[in-house]
């Protein structure tokens, strides 16, 4: 058909180029010559997008259920204590003795860690598996975002989300502690130094869990397999050293408690105690390791898993 026919049929676009054989229409697209933001902006964008998707924003309600319910459940005991703190403080002023510390900053994670871990199991595969399954990684890597930046942005977003999850009960405990005291300003001054280690401690927990979860998840394009691999790894890395230690106890295998350093949850728990300057409770921790050693182990595991993650993303087929 000739250009003349096309115009009669209602095509109104102006001609950009024309020859007797064919025409190119000017549809108004323009070339962009302006300044472009670089890699750091791309990373930031991916970080924000990932953070939103961890919480299910921009996705249907069903995607929001798991993260919000788990966050709520994790904070629930602390919120209970907050809700009843007024009752408790009245009891105290009536002089019925000192209030036993049920929930404390340094031991909260070790009591309810399974909910935070389940948060990782549910959400970490969401972040990395879809992109591999539906083969959209090339779409990222052909932009100004590199492979390493991609991995780091995803990692940072999961860590940030986990940090938020971990901090909610700490804030609730803090408010509860203050409300129990008669003089609020004095109470803030007293309580704040006790609560502040929660920032570095929860930061390390968030980083440690994010690094393990994302690294294990990144090895399978299927969410289901990633999730089960993550659970298998963490549960066994906790259980097997404990079993080996228990087996070796009657013999003179003194080295077996060094295996505790590979326990992902326990080393983060031990590190938390170190940040708060608490001694390790003998019921929870066996063996001769100190809180300091657990803290170092936790740090090393963050570095190690992040390195593996970056290596994985150097090779992952795009």
């Amino acid at each position: 058909m000739t250009a003349q026919n096309l115009q009669q049929m209602g095509t109104t676009a102006p001609l950009a180029a024309s020859s007797p054989g064919g025409s190119i229409y000017d549809l108004g697209y323009r070339h962009y010559d302006g300044p472009r933001r670089g890699r750091s902006w791309a990373m930031w964008s991916l970080f924000v997008e990932s953070f939103r998707s961890v919480w299910g924003f921009g996705r249907p309600m069903t995607a929001k259920a798991a993260p919000f319910i788990l966050t709520g459940l994790y904070a629930l005991p602390a919120l209970f204590q907050l809700a009843f703190s007024s009752v408790i403080s009245q009891e105290m002023t009536n002089g019925s003795g000192p209030q036993p510390e049920l929930l404390a900053y340094h031991s909260y994670f070790s009591m309810f860690y399974f909910l935070v871990f389940f948060f990782c199991v549910a959400q970490a595969p969401e972040l990395v598996c879809r992109d591999q399954r539906y083969r959209v990684l090339p779409l990222y890597f052909t932009r100004s975002l590199g492979r390493l930046e991609y991995a780091l942005a995803r990692l940072a977003s999961l860590a940030a989300a986990l940090f938020l999850v971990l901090m909610v009960p700490c804030v609730a405990l803090f408010i509860g502690d203050i409300l129990m005291k008669p003089d609020t300003f004095k109470a803030i001054g007293d309580e704040l130094p006790k609560a502040l280690p929660a920032f570095p401690a929860n930061g390390l927990i968030a980083l440690g869990l994010a690094a393990i979860s994302l690294t294990v998840s990144s090895f399978s394009p299927r969410r289901a397999y990633s999730a089960i691999a993550l659970v298998a790894y963490v549960l066994l890395a906790e259980a097997v050293p404990a079993a080996v230690f228990a087996i070796g106890q009657s013999s003179d295998w003194s080295w077996t408690d060094k295996l505790f350093l590979v326990m992902p949850i326990s080393s983060l728990d031990g590190a938390t105690n170190w940040f708060f300057g608490k001694a390790l409770q003998p019921g929870r921790f066996t063996g001769s390791l100190t809180a300091e050693e657990y803290a170092i182990a936790a740090l090393i595991s963050v570095v190690l898993f992040t390195t593996v993650l970056l290596f994985r993303y150097r090779r992952v087929p795009a």
């Binding site: 066994l236 259980a239 404990a242 079993a243 080996v244 228990a246 087996i247 009657s250 013999s251």
Partner: peptide
């Protein structure tokens, strides 16, 4: 782990059931 038990020179129903069967085989 069972092999390790034997290597430690232990053959016990009690501790094996707790350490290997309960915490690993049936729980994980």
């Amino acid at each position: 782990l069972a092999v390790l038990f034997r290597a430690a020179g232990r053959t016990e129903i009690d501790s094996y059931s707790r350490i290997v069967f309960d915490t690993i085989a049936i729980t994980i």
